[in-house]
């Protein structure tokens, strides 16, 4: 196992554990909601997810395909509205994309 892979995993994994446990241990988040840190924490998650959505979608846009990405995106939206489930919406999007890929291939 390469050291850079293990080091990256350990650093990010330790941070993940801290993010998930330490706010519970120390009762963080129960203070004033308008502070700079609270605003930053509230914004960084959506910013990260939005960034990664656009970053992962760009190659599909660049490839010029229309039907499969459109079907996949529509399925994610529809199943999310229907069930409010991240897992189900994700799987539905992948299945619909595969269907669109098969139809256009």
């Amino acid at each position: 196992m390469r050291w850079e892979v293990l080091a990256l995993a350990l650093v990010v994994g330790a941070a993940n554990w801290g993010f998930r446990y330490l706010p519970i241990r120390f009762g963080l988040g129960s203070g004033a909601e308008g502070g700079v840190l609270a605003r930053f924490l509230a914004a960084v998650g959506p910013a990260a997810i939005a960034t990664l959505f656009f970053a992962s979608a760009l190659p599909f846009v660049a490839a010029g395909a229309v039907l499969a990405p459109a079907l996949g995106t529509a399925a994610v939206l529809a199943v999310w509205v229907w069930r409010r489930s991240v897992v189900l919406a994700t799987l539905a999007g992948a299945v619909a994309y595969a269907g669109g890929f098969a139809l256009s291939g």
């Binding site: 939005a50 979608a57 939206l77």
Partner: peptide, 30 residues
């Protein structure tokens, strides 16, 4: 192909799960 689309689908679903009106400017700018 379907598995390749799992990642953008996951991010889109996560984005929907946290979507609120105050977060729209954050998402647009990002």
């Amino acid at each position: 192909a379907g598995l390749g689309f799992l990642l953008p689908a996951l991010f889109l679903a996560l984005l929907l799960s946290i979507l609120t009106r105050p977060q729209v400017p954050v998402i647009v700018v990002a």
